[in-house]
């Protein structure tokens, strides 16, 4: 094998380039649409029922003069999910700050706590009511799942919160929060990026954001060009996946009807007795699963190198 072919990079060989290409395509969709939106193009977003409930929930809490409780999920460290949740909570806190409504934000993770503390303080400052901000309203509770659950339920019951927001990564504890809040009649808006927890939120909460409605939330609430543009980019990508599925399914359906006498394993074609075509013989399957031929490349050995296992003798 000529060296020029060898050096294209392991991950690009055979159909390996396809995955990289798709990733870059999605990134391009997002970035292009952010540009479009920044350029002043007005982009449409459909109504999302759960999000209209946010204002209603805070309104009710203000009427009752009771706190609003927020939990940005149980992420192990700070990630986009937690950031997105805190961003939505910044919107909630802004309204709460205007009406001088007390808030409580319970964090599972110290990094999320740091981020939330900074963000929420900023919100109060930019509203010009920095004196209303109590740093203890954003608090770290525990970073053990069920201790956190016990702590937050205790808080919900003692503070008699009027509205609760559970947005982010939730696992088994989702139902503990939701039912506890339900038992004191709090209005609840919830969402979990873990699909397996969504049914429990549906059963126990007033409004539920399903799946990536959660990611759409900040764009929907604020209409910031960057967010709206990114949302449109995501939609383009979704549409692309839909088309790929429809096209691929039809292609596979017809390809698989035939028979084959050759087979490709580890990137090498070989003749075999005639048999029915299998899924792995189809064009799409070959495109998705790169098959790498074994290539030997000779390189000089590092003189300082001590092979594993020999050192211990």
């Amino acid at each position: 094998m000529p060296l020029s072919e060898v050096y294209i990079g392991e991950q690009y060989r055979d159909s390996g380039w396809f995955g990289v290409f798709m990733t870059l395509l999605v990134a391009a969709f997002v970035l292009v649409n952010i540009r479009r939106a920044r350029g002043g193009k007005d982009l449409y977003i459909r109504r999302i029922a759960g999000l209209n409930a946010i204002d209603e929930a805070i309104g009710r809490a203000t009427e009752m003069g009771k706190p609003v409780l927020m939990v940005p999920g149980l992420s192990d460290t700070i990630n986009a999910i937690a950031v997105q949740a805190v961003n939505i909570f910044a919107y909630v806190s802004r309204i709460a700050a205007r009406f001088a409504n007390p808030i409580l934000l319970c964090c599972y993770n110290a990094a999320v706590y740091t981020y939330a503390q900074e963000t929420i303080r900023d919100v109060y400052q930019s509203e010009g009511v920095a004196d209303r901000y109590d740093p203890d309203s954003v608090r770290f509770v525990s970073d053990r799942q069920f201790a956190f659950a016990a702590g937050v339920s205790g808080l919900i019951l003692r503070e008699q919160t009027a509205a609760t927001f559970f947005l982010g990564e939730f696992y088994a504890e989702s139902l503990i929060f939701a039912e506890t809040a339900n038992s004191i009649g709090a209005i609840q808006v919830a969402s979990s990026t873990e699909t397996t927890q969504t049914p429990f939120f549906i059963a126990a909460c007033d409004y539920v954001l399903i799946g990536d409605e959660f990611y759409a939330a900040s764009a929907y609430l604020t209409r910031q060009p960057v967010l709206v543009g990114s949302l449109v980019g995501q939609d383009w990508s979704k549409l692309m996946i839909i088309l790929m599925i429809v096209f691929g399914t039809i292609l596979n359906t017809f390809e698989i009807q035939g028979k084959t006498t050759s087979e490709r394993t580890k990137g090498v074609w070989s003749q075999i007795p005639e048999r029915n075509k299998k899924q792995s013989d189809t064009f799409m399957s070959q495109l998705f699963k790169p098959q790498l031929e074994k290539v030997k490349v000779e390189r000089p050995i590092d003189p300082n190198y001590v092979p594993e296992g020999e050192a211990a003798k």
Binding site: M244, T249, N252, T253, I256, Q257, F288, K289
Partner: peptide
């Protein structure tokens, strides 16, 4: 960016099932 296709590529592939009997 690194894991997106690793996670979802195989899932898209697994969705492409033939819908006519052979």
């Amino acid at each position: 960016v690194q894991v997106w296709w690793n996670t979802y590529g195989p899932q898209i592939d697994a969705t492409l099932k033939p819908i006519l009997p052979t």
